[in-house]
Amino acid sequence: MSLQTKLEVVCLELLKKTSTDLPPDVEQALEKAEKGERDPVARANLRAILENLRVARERGVPLCQDTGLPLFYFWMDPSLPLDPFEAARKAVKKATREGFLRPNTVHPLSRKNEGNNLGKEMPRVKVFRRRGEEVEVTVLLKGAGSENCSKLIMLAPEKGVEGIKELVVKAVAEAGGKPCPPIILGVGIGGNAELSMELANLSLLRPLPERHREPSLRRLEEELEKRINRLGLGPMGLGGKTTCLGVKVEYAHTHTASLPVSLSFLCWAARRASASLEVGG
């Protein structure tokens, strides 16, 4: 088997895994939330979510009818004889054909659907340069319910940290039950408009227990999570303590006259998985 084919297999297996299972940290957070809820409706919703996960895992079927748009992240040495874009395309096409992905991808204007989840700039692939013979791949599936709640706000710099907190909590409150809470929220701060949203998405790749390394950002994550859960939206927006399983923040330096803030929502089905390929192995 060629090295390129091995990479395609890795991508395909990650798509199958993300479609039919959740990361352990997300499942554990849902179990903890179910035990901590007092509202009977909230507990019933969380139990239904956990039962849905169990059935999907046992039967090897998608755990949500909206299998989302696949996002691929590669960390690799650019000198390696590999084409991550082609590997991702072939994996997506095959996963769609085998029923692990619903054919969601359409032309934005004509809405024409080719039926294979391929198209201009789709699947989305991001490649990060690093040295060595190990290739790391992460796949994230983002459904439309949560993606449609995403926001980019060019906040006035004088609003500062308090302004960021207010707009984040307001955005979650306005989203209500649309993103299928309990959510995981990625917050990208700084850079330009494009980088801000990229940071929000990248933050979602961090496991739930992993807080930001910088103390001020760690405190911001913790405070935002508490404020959001105090909203009382609860699972599916029907009330309860658990609106949010976690908040992840990333930042970049920005223009002195700008303060971009981007929000990237994940529903309870926070489908991400990673694997590595040893080129020399």
Rank of each mutant, 00 (worst) to 15 (best):
R271T: 12
S203I: 02
E250Y: 00
A171Y: 05
S216W: 00
L82W: 11
L53Y: 09
L195Q: 15
T18G: 09
E98Y: 02
K151G: 04
T96W: 04
R54K: 13
L12F: 13
P157M: 09
F72M: 01
G99N: 09
L12N: 08
L204C: 09
R102M: 12
F74L: 00
R111A: 09
E13K: 11
R54F: 08
L71G: 11
E34Y: 02
R211T: 12
A88N: 06
R130E: 00
E133L: 15
N201T: 06
A173W: 14
E134L: 14
R124M: 13
P70T: 13
V26K: 01
R206N: 13
T138Y: 04
L118Y: 04
K170F: 04
C267T: 03
G234K: 04
L199G: 04
A95S: 07
P23F: 05
G177K: 14
L259G: 01
T5D: 13
D83L: 03
R218V: 00
R102F: 12
P24F: 03
K120V: 15
E198I: 14
A270P: 01
V10G: 07
P108K: 03
R206V: 11
K6D: 15
N116E: 00
K112F: 13
P62R: 03
E58W: 04
R206S: 15
G99C: 12
E133T: 14
E147K: 03
V61P: 10
A56W: 03
E278D: 15
R206H: 13
K126R: 00
I164F: 06
W75R: 12
R54W: 08
R38A: 10
I184W: 01
A171P: 01
Y251N: 00
C267W: 00
E58G: 08
G281L: 12
N116L: 08
A252I: 00
E250N: 11
R206L: 15
T67S: 10
A273G: 12
G36M: 02
T243E: 09
L259N: 05
E194C: 02
E31F: 02
V26H: 07
Y251H: 11
I228C: 01
G115V: 02
G190L: 00
T256Q: 00
K151Y: 02
K17F: 05
E114S: 15
C64V: 14
P24N: 04
R54A: 15
P70G: 00
S276L: 05
L224C: 06
E162A: 11
L3D: 14
D83P: 02
E223L: 14
F72L: 03
D39H: 07
F100Q: 06
D83V: 01
S216I: 00
S262E: 09
R230C: 10
P70E: 06
P179V: 12
L12K: 01
A270N: 07
Q4S: 13
A95F: 04
A88M: 08
T254N: 10
P182E: 10
G60H: 09
L30C: 00
